[in-house]
């Protein structure tokens, strides 16, 4: 089942945002785009609400929780653990970016919702 992060309200920069969303969450890569969208949806909800029940592979959760909520705490060991779990550097990169973009879409969603006309 494909999971997508929520639709974001439009703004004057929506075309650029859409280009980025399509590339990172849907473009060709080493990881399945369905997994990238799942990561983005998970990060989006976790970032906005501080918790989420959305599914995510267990082996990714510790790293992506950290990237979402406190990326400054990521260590060399966190990345090494993913490598030891069988993820290539390109896969780690793509999933990190999917997570970051999910948080960015969450920021747009939360921010644009309150700046509209009264």
């Amino acid at each position: 089942m494909a999971i997508d992060p929520p639709i974001v309200p439009t703004s004057r920069h929506s075309l650029a945002v859409e280009r980025l969303r399509r590339s990172v969450l849907g473009g060709p890569g080493q990881t399945d785009p369905d997994l990238r969208r799942q990561v983005a949806a998970y990060a989006n909800e976790l970032w906005r609400a501080g918790k989420t029940d959305l599914p995510l592979p267990d082996e990714l959760r510790p790293y992506l929780d950290k990237v979402t909520l406190a990326a400054y705490k990521v260590t060399d060991e966190d990345v090494e653990n993913l490598r030891n779990g069988g993820f290539s550097d390109d896969e780690i990169l793509e999933l990190t970016l999917a997570c970051a973009v999910g948080c960015g879409l969450g920021t747009l969603g939360a921010g644009l919702a309150v700046v509209g006309e009264a």
């Binding site: 990237v67 400054y72 997570c99």
Partner: peptide, 14 residues
Amino acid sequence: AAIFVVMTRFANAM
């Protein structure tokens, strides 16, 4: 704000 939410996660994680 959204751009830097993305970029800070990328920069700090990497």
